[in-house]
Design a protein around this nucleic acid. Structure first.
Length: 596
DNA sequence: CGAACTTGCGCC
DNA sequence: AAAGGGCGCAAGTTCG
């Protein structure tokens, strides 16, 4: 809604027409009705149907009218939603990841929503209360000033399609309070809290975009990533050899045998201590059996051992058992967890969707007649740093689609690799090897950018909280950390703990602000795709990379919205005068491995 | 015997 | 003098 849309105080600019990202969920109490914006609360009732199916309740938000619908089956609810959604409706849900999978199975699609649990967490975290539960019962108790509910169910399980695992249980709400009523109460309290926040427009944008991202995540899990099991099987056989009934596949077994032969004694390459002992017997002292350590060791066992490790990893993490467990009907379905990482990045539960090895990208293929549109936000974090810090010269460097090459030309004598190390050292706090010197050179040339992360590091070393651009907040250090760093006698250990936490907060401001940007980007993309190619499916998202699966005839239209959305996400997140470029080039392919 | 921990490596 | 951020997963080991 325009009144409380994305007007950004800091930039004194009013954004219009951002539909999904206008905090229409009554956040600006009193303004909603004027624009035809309404909130409708949807909650799962405590009672179930006689068949044990969940029942749902619908009610207008902020108790605007007593027009409540109860005892709706999932099919009823889906039908009502399709019927009631005017495009100005914000669906208020206790938790998207609990209700949306059911709705998607019944063909309902929410255009805009407010996720109460995600919002509650953002609000709790902004006060440094990261450990407090953010589920409905706890949020209700806080809103009402009640003591926290005992052992409330705070961790809504991610829907895995195995409803039976999550047997009916108490809501943790006081007797007589329905989940929908509680949701309404918490919504009102969140609206007040958002108005009180230090940068309310930014936090409101974050709340809106995280809620939309939750819809994206639910849809991604629903669609699944197109995955060719036959191709996967062929890749495994080619790399690992024939499957054995029990034990290692043939190539892996051969490599293990060669390792033992090289040592002249049986060695289990899966067992690090035995590998370290074997090297010691051969007169070589190694601190561990890690690959980067072994790479520098001169011994005939090293070659086959490194090869074994790489393949054994593939076998264990993404081998045949992974295939059997996670790929069904040509789709890999992971459970995405929005905000599952403190920095705001997504996590996944099960299937390791965010760690798909590069050799398996060939398994991701479009359906016949369909295409994949693959895009990644190149060098996102350095660009985010440029935007955060307002470093004018770094913003100029960001005009190039290869930021590191441009940085190298500007300050590192054309040496791209060194420019990259320097930048990563700024982002991660690395100083090993020549990183320290390279960072110093970066500081000379880009003082504002380097100062920005160094301030964040210094705040962390003092135990203070830091925030992302839109208001994600770093967790406070543990009590143990405070005791250690506050102890004058702790010396080296205290110093190290302090520096460690500083590296965390240094990276947090950038990583979390990048998550702000991608959250807004996902929300904008979801809306743009709904307009331009309604059948297109967002099927994958990993920190800064996206895949859309769409009809071949829609692929050009899909590709054309990416850069527009990225530009808009940059403007919304960092303000209209932010000069930093965020390239998001789309590639049209049939197979993920063919992208870039 | 399973839970909790450690090690090592994949992705960004 | 040296010092790299975030995650998930599986195998091995140790603990209770």
């Amino acid at each position: 809604m325009a009144r409380h849309g994305l007007r950004n105080e800091e930039h004194n600019v009013e954004s219009e027409g951002h539909g999904v990202l206008e905090a229409g969920h009554g956040v600006g109490v009193g303004g909603a009705e004027q624009n035809g914006d309404v909130d409708i609360v949807v909650a799962e009732q405590e009672e179930q149907s006689r068949d044990g199916e969940p029942l749902y309740e619908l009610r207008p938000g902020n108790a605007a009218a007593p027009d409540v619908a109860r005892d709706l089956t999932a099919a009823d609810l889906a039908a009502r939603i399709s019927q009631l959604d005017t495009g100005h409706t914000t669906w208020v849900l206790p938790s998207v990841d609990r209700i949306c999978p059911v709705l998607l199975r019944h063909g309902a699609r929410l255009r805009r929503c407010h996720d109460l649990a995600l919002t509650e967490r953002l609000l709790r975290n902004s006060q440094g209360r990261h450990d407090e539960p953010h589920g409905l019962a706890a949020a209700y108790a806080r809103a009402r000033g009640l003591p926290p509910p005992p052992d409330a169910d705070e961790h809504d399980p991610v829907d895995t399609g195995q409803a039976a695992l999550f047997a009916p249980r108490g809501t943790g709400l006081p007797d007589g309070v329905t989940p929908a009523e509680a949701t309404d109460v918490v919504l009102a309290e969140q609206q007040r809290a958002l108005q009180r926040a230090p940068a309310p427009e930014r936090l409101r944008l974050l709340v809106a975009s995280e809620s939309q991202s939750a819809l994206v995540a639910a849809e991604m899990s629903h669609h699944g990533l197109p995955w060719r099991a036959d191709v996967h099987d062929a890749v495994l056989t080619e790399l690992l050899g024939r499957r054995a009934a029990n034990g290692r596949p043939s190539t892996l077994a051969d490599l293990a045998e060669r390792v033992s032969e090289a040592f002249g004694t049986p060695v289990n390459p899966d067992h690090p201590p035995s590998v370290v002992r074997a090297f010691r017997r051969a007169g070589i002292d190694v601190p561990s059996s890690r690959a980067h350590v072994l790479r520098d060791v001169d011994h005939p066992a090293v070659g086959p051992l490194l090869e074994y490790k790489e393949l054994a990893r593939l076998h264990a993490a993404h081998g045949w058992s992974w295939l059997r467990e996670w790929v069904h009907d040509g789709r890999f379905r992971a459970a995405y967890v929005v905000g599952g990482v403190v920095s705001g990045r997504w996590a996944t539960r099960g299937g390791g969707a965010l760690q798909i090895p590069k050799v398996l990208r060939t398994c991701v293929r479009a359906d016949p007649g369909w295409r994949l549109v693959v895009a990644d936000a190149a060098q996102l974090e350095p660009r985010v740093l440029a935007a955060l810090s307002g470093d004018r010269r770094l913003a100029d460097v960001s005009a190039s689609s290869d930021l590191y090459a441009s940085l190298a030309t500007d300050a590192f004598g054309g040496e791209r690799a060194r420019a990259k190390i320097a930048m990563l050292s700024a982002l991660y706090g690395g100083t090993a090897g020549e990183a320290g010197q390279l960072l110093a050179r970066l500081r000379t040339r880009f003082p504002d950018a380097v100062r920005y992360v160094e301030h964040a590091a210094a705040a962390g070393e003092r135990g203070e909280l830091v925030r992302s651009r839109l208001g994600r907040t770093s967790p406070p250090p543990s009590e143990q950390w405070r005791a250690l760093t506050g102890n004058a006698d702790a010396g080296v250990a205290a110093h190290r703990a302090s520096r460690d936490w500083g590296r965390f907060t240094r990276n947090f401001v950038v990583q979390a602000s990048a998550a702000d940007f991608t959250s807004v980007l996902l929300a904008l993309l979801r809306r743009a795709l709904a307009d331009r190619a309604p059948d297109a499916e967002l099927v994958f998202f990993q920190h800064d990379e996206l895949i859309v699966h769409c009809r071949g005839e829609d692929a050009e239209a899909v590709a054309s919205v990416f850069q527009t959305c990225a530009d808009e996400a940059g403007t919304l997140t960092f303000g209209p005068r932010c000069p930093v470029r965020f390239p998001l080039e789309a590639t049209l392919v049939d197979c993920y491995a063919d992208a870039k």
